[in-house]
Amino acid sequence: MLRQIGEFYHQGEKDDTSRVWMTCWHHGGRILASCGDDKAVRVWSLVGEPDSKMRLECRTTLDDSHTRAVRSVAFSNDGKCLVSASFDASVVVYQQEDGEFAEVNKLEGHESEVKCAVFSKSDEFLATCSRDKSVWFWQQDEDEDFSVSSILQPHTQDVKQVAWHPTEDLLVSCSYDSSIRFYRFDGEDWVTQQKIDGCHVGTVWSIAFDTEGHRLVTVGEDHCIQLFVRENIGSKSADQDTWKSVARYDVENTRWPLYSVAWNSTNDVIATGGGDCKIRLFKISSTPESPVIEHLGVVGRHELDVNHVAWNPNPKFSNLLTSASDDGTIRLWELEI
């Protein structure tokens, strides 16, 4: 169901590869950012049209901001900023100037490796999480500088990822301590709204919301994908609501973790990547009483671990998926239904 349309070496040369940790699409669908062990952030253009040969061309390399591996990248929702999180414990914000991204801010404070940094829907807040077990909320002011809004230490082990709700100021984090936590703004500080322990057996590696923000999937070390839903959709806002697990699918023919999950905002197809080098697709069956996670099959493969998968957010390119791998490549896939 996935057709590979391109394979791109992060460092540009086949003989000199290093792990690629993540890719992230710009909301317009034509720009992709990537990061990896080479300490660099790369910005790619998606060249070509959907009905002809499409490919990625590297147009910017940002290689002097970090001193160690870059673990995550994310665009701001207005598309003007890019943020990277690194094992050097820093978070760097880049801004687009004359079509190129350049470093404008370095945010320090985490004690150890930063795993993830993402902008909230309004871009007012930036959330970061780290091996030091903390989740930080940074607030952007008029000067486009960031100040610390809250520092929370909600987990007992390092925090792997944070994800924002698609429409409201609600954040969720997942951790090596097997739990996920939800956070909301109480008018003065960010506070923990809900805790779900024992979410997976072992590390919870990744989280993804659906496009409405009523459903959430997680994947983890136990090679399971799990579905959570809001319990009071009609009567409470998302940041006041509670979430419960309603379905679970165990990928039985592997013993490797699932490292990443991405929920397509147009066609609702869910993609995962994992330690067994495979990309899988899932769908939630439409029976509203008891949702079921349907495994659509193994549809793609890398030479080594798949660290991240990302759907293109533009409906025009909604069939495009990128994957990042330990084999040093970013692969571009097209979903064929």
């Binding site: 490796e113 082990q157 070390e221 490797w256 973790p257 330690g275």
Partner: peptide, 21 residues
């Protein structure tokens, strides 16, 4: 806590998480 990535004592474990990071 879990040994820092910079710990000079060589760590060999079967933990996939460790290999991952």
């Amino acid at each position: 806590i879990a040994p820092n990535l910079d710990c000079i004592i060589p760590l060999e474990t079967r933990t996939v998480e460790k290999k991952k990071e």
